[in-house]
Every structure is written in structure tokens, then in C-alpha cells.
């Protein structure tokens, strides 16, 4: 790859924008088309591009396989944890205090920094999407690693 400077330069220029776009898709998913799933794939594609241009060892330094593997779990846990959290929070506007059902986002309503921090449904979706985004990113990268790095890892 060293002999293709154009590719190297262009990718170096492009990757930040890909990452930025991924973040946009991730966090604007609450308002328009998008979401963690698409964002995760876009994010992973940046890493994959990096690995293809600069070689796997370089990519391993940026995104170590061990860490990525754990990230799969972290993303899932964030999603599942949101569900569990809703079990412990009280439902808003109830006479008798009742805790929410699994993944009942209404219980996330709060009054901290209204208008800036997401609340209620929005917060729930935000967290779940974040978890999904992390997991999808990690899974995509790990699949790539698994195939591309087969000989070296094995």
C-alpha cells in the first residue's frame, strides 16, 4: 500500500468525515432517518478502510481486537441495562408509585437541563440506539478482523 500515496492521503482525509457522518447518523437518528444500526456500519467502515489502507497491524493498534470483542458485550449491556433500569424507576404521573415495565422509556423523565438533555422516551431511545451503535460497530469490525486476520491470528 505504501506505493499508493494518493489512496493513503485520500483515506486519511476521508476517514474523519466518515466518522463524523457516522456520529451524525447516530445522534440525529432521533430526529430523522438514521440510528445506531446504520451509524455502526458507517463507523465500522471507517476502521475497515483504515485497515485496508494501512494494514491490519495498524488497525489493531487503533482498535485492538480484545477491546472490540468486549465492546460487543458493552453495547449489548447498555441496551439491556436500559431495559433493566426501567424496571426500577417509577412511572411518571401515577397516584400509586409503580415501577415501569421492561424498556418502558416513559420512566426516564427528569427535569435536569430541559431542552438540552434528552428525557423520557427520547432518553430511552437514545441509550438503546447508542448501545446498538456500539455493538454493530464492534461486530462489523470483528467480522472483518476474523476474516482478514485469519492466518495471523490463528
Amino acid at each position: 500500500m505504501i506505493s499508493f500515496p494518493i489512496i493513503r492521503v485520500v483515506s486519511k482525509l476521508l476517514i474523519p468525515y466518515i466518522l463524523l457522518f457516522a456520529l451524525y447518523v447516530q445522534f440525529h437518528g432521533d430526529f430523522g432517518p438514521g440510528g445506531g444500526f446504520q451509524a455502526g456500519v458507517i463507523f465500522a467502515s471507517a476502521i475497515v478502510l483504515y485497515a485496508m489502507v494501512f494494514g491490519l497491524p495498524a488497525a489493531y493498534e487503533v482498535a485492538p481486537p480484545k477491546v472490540i470483542e468486549k465492546l460487543v458485550a458493552v453495547g449489548l449491556l447498555l441496551y439491556a441495562g436500559t431495559g433493566f433500569a426501567s424496571l426500577f424507576l417509577p412511572r411518571p404521573n401515577q397516584d400509586v408509585p409503580v415501577t415501569g415495565n421492561f424498556l418502558e422509556y416513559e420512566v426516564f423523565q427528569h427535569n435536569l437541563l430541559p431542552g438540552i438533555l434528552p428525557t423520557g422516551q427520547h432518553l430511552g431511545i437514545f441509550l438503546v440506539e447508542l448501545g446498538v451503535g456500539i455493538t454493530v460497530t464492534a461486530v462489523m469490525i470483528i467480522i472483518f478482523y476474523a476474516f482478514a486476520g485469519r492466518e495471523r491470528v490463528a
Binding site: 437518528g29 432521533d30 430526529f31 430523522g32 432517518p33 438514521g34 440510528g35 445506531g36 444500526f37 446504520q38 441496551y79 422516551q121 427520547h122 431511545i125 438503546v128 440506539e129 446498538v132 455493538t135 454493530v136
Partner: peptide, 8 residues
């Protein structure tokens, strides 16, 4: 928010 998509 609209049509967010996720794998659950």
C-alpha cells in the same frame, strides 16, 4: 423521532 431502526 422517527423510524429509528435497531436490531431488537
Amino acid at each position: 423521532h422517527v423510524a429509528h431502526a435497531d436490531n431488537h
